[in-house]
Design a protein around this nucleic acid. Structure first.
Lengths: 209, 209
DNA sequence: ACCTGAACACCGTTCAAGT
DNA sequence: ACCTGAACACCGTTCAAGT
């Protein structure tokens, strides 16, 4: 974070923090017009630099989108962490439920960013940063499940399967939303989040001992 | 299916069934090199026609890929139907489990085609053909769940939530695979199908009364 | 009826040359 | 150190003109 922070408005900035400006502009464009609209050239145009300039800061379009994904994943994990803090009172399984709901709320509120995080082929999955953050979430889920199991709150069955299943359930619901599949499921777009949370609730209830 | 069926090999076919040839070539290219490699121009080159020729048969690249998706969805539904036939003996919930396994097996065996079916932005989701086939699968799931419920095999809870949840679970597992997320889950690619079927098993067991 | 081939407005990426 | 601007090899799509 250097001291320079030139006004992006009006004309006339040709230097400055192009790297971060690119990430921010990409995040904006994704929100406004979807992933496909994010071309390196369009970003360069938006920031008033030449088509080749972004490549001083990112190896490729994929590398740029990976940086966007890392930022988005940070916000997702923040949302999950906040959901966890607000749910301190309950037993492990209801905390688990709360972080699932936080995950779903964020994904439904930020569909295109969720898409960037989750879609391979658009980002570089070998990114250590992405992997670390993903591991952090998995660890949180594991700990909650393990303590639910050791406190006898969990139905018989392999704990790893419950963790992976819960993750796949939330991931599936979020992707069904961004892939536009709730419509063909008889669920209106504005009811999709509510329906998803209900589903999550019921499946976690089914996991209880 | 017209009588003409010119040899695609060697040189020299400029007419023929270009429409179906395009769909077949697209399916091949998807399998060989992934979705991104499927450009209209590359297909035209492969079939020895000019860049504009495909547009006599499809409005757009999206329309072409939608046709590919319809074919792929047919094969997926066939796989599911076959799984159902082979599982006639059991109670409704174990039939349900079998079609889930059939779904997963197909998705894991045909990842790029599953991607084409499921990814909006690449195909036209308003396609009536796609919607009809999707409805057919949903109806099958509904019937099995309803009869499981009426025979008292199902745990208390809203039946619709179980159906949507089961679908989201299978969809999520399949998409986690094509999105390359099992690696960061500590599951090798060649174990992903087995792990997914186990998860499905355990969740269906949890739904039992 | 179907196809060609040129054209238009885009891409991602590279690289000499400028400051 | 960072950026420009031209260049290369691609796209999807349109459309007159050919057969």
């Amino acid at each position: 974070m250097p001291a320079e922070n030139p006004a992006e408005e009006e004309r006339g900035y040709h230097h400055g923090d192009l790297r971060h400006a690119l990430i921010a502009a990409a995040a904006e464009l994704i929100e406004e017009q979807g992933l496909d609209a994010v071309s390196v050239r369009a970003l360069a145009r938006r920031l008033g630099v030449s088509p080749g300039a972004p490549f001083r800061h990112f190896q490729s379009r994929t590398a740029l989108l990976t940086a966007v994904a890392e930022e988005a994943q940070d916000r997702l994990l923040e949302a999950v962490a906040q959901a966890r803090r607000q749910a301190l009172e309950g037993d492990p399984l209801s905390v688990f439920r709360s972080i699932g709901e936080g995950y779903l709320r964020w994904a439904f509120a930020n569909p295109t960013h969720f898409q960037v995080i989750s879609t391979r082929a658009v980002i570089d999955y070998d990114s250590p940063a992405l992997r670390q953050r993903n591991d952090a979430l998995r660890l949180t889920m594991s700990q909650l499940m393990e303590s639910a199991a050791s406190q006898g709150h969990l139905r018989p069955g392999d704990v790893e399967n419950y963790i992976l299943g819960a993750r796949a359930l939330a991931y599936g619901l979020a992707r069904m939303h961004i892939d536009g599949q709730f419509a063909s499921w008889g669920v209106d777009t504005d009811q999709a989040l509510g329906a998803s949370v209900e589903v999550l609730d019921q499946f976690i209830a089914a996991m209880r001992a």
